[in-house]
Design a protein around this nucleic acid. Sequence first.
DNA 1: TTCTAACCGAGACGGTACGTCCTGTCTTAGC
DNA 2: GCTAAGACAGGACGTACCGTCTCGGTTAGAA
Lengths: 199, 199, 199, 199
Amino acid sequence: MTEATRKPDASRRSQRSREAILTAAMELMAEVGYAKLTIEAIAARAGAGKQTIYRWWPTKSAVVLDAFRLNAETQEDEVDFPDTGDLDADLRIVMRAIADECNNPRYDGPARVMIAEAQHDPEFGAEAREAFLLPAITATKERLRSGQRAGQLRADADLDVVVELLFGPIHHRWLHSTAPITHAYADQIVDYVLAAVRP
Amino acid sequence: MTEATRKPDASRRSQRSREAILTAAMELMAEVGYAKLTIEAIAARAGAGKQTIYRWWPTKSAVVLDAFRLNAETQEDEVDFPDTGDLDADLRIVMRAIADECNNPRYDGPARVMIAEAQHDPEFGAEAREAFLLPAITATKERLRSGQRAGQLRADADLDVVVELLFGPIHHRWLHSTAPITHAYADQIVDYVLAAVRP
Amino acid sequence: MTEATRKPDASRRSQRSREAILTAAMELMAEVGYAKLTIEAIAARAGAGKQTIYRWWPTKSAVVLDAFRLNAETQEDEVDFPDTGDLDADLRIVMRAIADECNNPRYDGPARVMIAEAQHDPEFGAEAREAFLLPAITATKERLRSGQRAGQLRADADLDVVVELLFGPIHHRWLHSTAPITHAYADQIVDYVLAAVRP
Amino acid sequence: MTEATRKPDASRRSQRSREAILTAAMELMAEVGYAKLTIEAIAARAGAGKQTIYRWWPTKSAVVLDAFRLNAETQEDEVDFPDTGDLDADLRIVMRAIADECNNPRYDGPARVMIAEAQHDPEFGAEAREAFLLPAITATKERLRSGQRAGQLRADADLDVVVELLFGPIHHRWLHSTAPITHAYADQIVDYVLAAVRP
DNA sequence: TTCTAACCGAGACGGTACGTCCTGTCTTAGC
DNA sequence: GCTAAGACAGGACGTACCGTCTCGGTTAGAA
């Protein structure tokens, strides 16, 4: 066997077709949803050959994940986690931002697709987690640790669990659509969680 | 009305084929996973005609949901939520039971399928929520209300939020596979939550 | 094996449904053609159960053949072959009658169906031949024999061949739709054939 | 125009699969007959995808017709109609050749299929007539015309009718299987017909 | 007159094939 | 050597009918 898995020369890759494909994928995602999204339709809409897609992405979900990444990069919302010294206020800001994302179709749609895809493709799940979830978790834990050092949290509080106490409820409500997600709700969670871990 | 959608006569439905189909669906789910599950394979394994499936279920996910339901009914785990008067102990029992389910492939697999499917089929999601999630939420809320009346919870605690504070974190950890789910973890959550809502 | 092929009791047969089925078959033949004709559609149109058809007829072609028979019986055109003594005139009458039938959709359609069906079902072909073709051939041969005895045909003429010289050409033109079939054409054939066999 | 019917690029057609499909069709025709012949079985036997068949042929009968054509081309029997000057002898040769074909399963089968198919699909009938029947008719007419010029036929003989007087009887006997088709019979027809049209 | 066996309409059933759609690979021409 | 285009083998889709079966309801002799 002579080099069965030929790997293409990335330096000669057409940037034009890459963007056309990812844009087409995003558009079709919005129009027909992930389940009815086909490689063929993406290629047709992008004016690209199917082979060009298969050459650069292994699966449909990889294309979609890349499309989401492109979409997210476009946004200029890489807000750093605030640290004003007032933990309560900082958490409120962040939890309200998450609530806003839950209500923004621009995030809601892609996020649901990624959750769904991750359930039957663990590798994809790991990648997506790495790219989208862990940064937020890490930043939150950082801020909590800073608050802990400042004596605003019990010294023995398990920060991994505290992060989950913050993200878990809002995530649960969003994922199962059990109730609307408001700023008031975001504040409520912060209240309960801080009540639990205050020294 | 042109009477387009002829509806079959449910009274003449073959119980034998219904069970064969749902059993085949469960088995194939376990063997190849939801994504590679085909109606054709279910019919073949069940010794049924495809039409018999299409006659009684609108989509693949409906078959699978029904299969899960049959599977769940078979189990004799319809444990009533305990109410010993000791809220702390009762919650621990329940949260540990949930932790056990997260680690039991018999529940883990189907549950992930349902979560995934629900994300791109809201109607399916609503049905699944109704059948599997709400009963647990309602029972938990009931127990919390009872505890609240007994003065073990703050009178102004929002029980919907408290339920989410309990279920959200464990659910989050399970869904994103961020860490193992142990009895100790279950206990931890109960501790934090009760600390937050104790009078 | 105990009487595997249960034969139904013909005396209890419902005349009403028999006629409804054959009528429906005739109508559907005219509407959609033999190839697209289905037992299911016949049953639905006739307001009969499928089993009632399968009980009394072995195949679709048997139903259709019966329908044609019913149709033919309805007609009162069982014209006896004329024998005026003038063979030329008598043959013209008969050949013109055949030409008329070729141009009459009432005969053309069914006849084509029977020809077609007979090609891939020899038994059906034998039955159809017996019922529809042989009577005409026999009557014609009879008339030719009478003419032969009267000295209007060569004594050594092979009547089977003469019949085919009469029927073959018109049949050929009809079957292959190579040219219109007129009375003039019918006369022409009689002219040529009589020229060939005149003493 | 919405460009509904995308037409494939014939220049890129796979010759290999075309032949495999037509060969498979021929074989299956011989094995199970036209009625039980399925596109699916042809594709399976040919190792081709069903779409490849549907891409290049509109119907089952079109595939079969093409298969016959390929079969006929393979044969090296494109005998030119003889013209020795002796019309009687030449016609005998041709009529005997036709008789032989009637008795040769290689021709009998396909021809019956085409006759049958032509009866409920006039377009197919037209194509088949063009490809298989008209060449023979034309050649025969040509030879007759040559004989007519040589004074062996009456000057006023209608050659279209004379051709039908030759082909019709043998065709009739073959189609309805009313009697065996022998060389003697072929000769007999030539005798009668020439008797009718001799000057 | 009641019983009972068969027919009847209806339609669910296990199947087969349909014609369409999409997958992932391969081939061709163009730049 | 990447690209657009699209033919190819393969396989699942959801539909239409096949011929068999089972279900009540009706009908017509036999008891």
